[in-house]
Amino acid sequence: MRFAPTDEQRDFARALDDLLGVAAVPHIARLWAEGHHAAGLHLWRRLAGLGVTALAVPEEHGGLDAAPADLVVAFEALGRYPVPGPAIESVVLAPTLLAAVPDGPAPEDLAEGKILVTVAAPPMTPYALDADMTDAVLLLEGTTLRAATPGRRLESVDRSRRLFETVPGPTLVRLEPDTVATALATAALTCAAQLLGAGEHALAVTVEYVKSRRQFGRVIGEYQAIKHLLADVRVALDFARPLVHGAAVSLGAGSTDARRDVAAAKVSASEAAYRASRAALQAHGAIGYTEEYDLSLWITKIRALVSAWGTPAHHRAELLAALTTGRPTHASDL
């Protein structure tokens, strides 16, 4: 057993941090929200250069055929910096769903980051992200994959999430139920990883803020009310992360517990990130409540991602179903 990121995964995370840390991602996200995609597309090309877009593409199509654990590393970084765009849809779902569609968008182009694809999967994910600017819009209805076109635009609380209704087009393929289940589980897992990253960022900026903000003659980080608020966030994130990593291991191994473990990861990461966002807002006070302060990008993104790719209620129900059907489940069976 070695339940920790590998050296390669640590290096990958560091490379992503090096790129995104100096890329003015909040500014790019704000431009994206206004429909100005050029800077965001440039960022996606740079992410492609690090291999992000090739992770889930099979090797024979120029991809990396990476493990779910590698996806988790990438998506935690995409959450730590509010990278706009259909990341889960294009990086995780499109390569899997399109594998059996010979005349669809080419996996080589996905791998190289030349194209972006979006996906709606009602009822869990009723709207397609960025459908007005992607190279393809997919609609997953049960096991039926259709082409679609963008319909009415809807506004998300996270302004960089530009949502669209979809107008169904021709059927592309009927997929195996297992393919769909694994694809959606991987989507929920990477969403959980994004939430972890976003929660970590919200905590980090808040720790810096409370170390410098002075009230009543002392920095507010000295007050126990603030310390305990943020300690609880640290604890919540520290105990959500192993669930996300554990679900990645389960998915990667094709374990029968994978859906259970992904459900646990998504519930836990949602709760931890949401706690982080609430604590961050409270500790910042009024400045945190403003749109112009960058913290707003994370507060709104976390709220949006909590209900994306399966609400907490959905995943709790999945978990309970997995725990009570079939063989008796014991947490202690590896």
Partner: peptide
């Protein structure tokens, strides 16, 4: 569900 998740989190942690 939350209790089971927490126990599993502690185990993996």
């Amino acid at each position: 569900a939350d209790a089971w998740i927490a126990a599993q989190a502690y185990r993996l942690y």
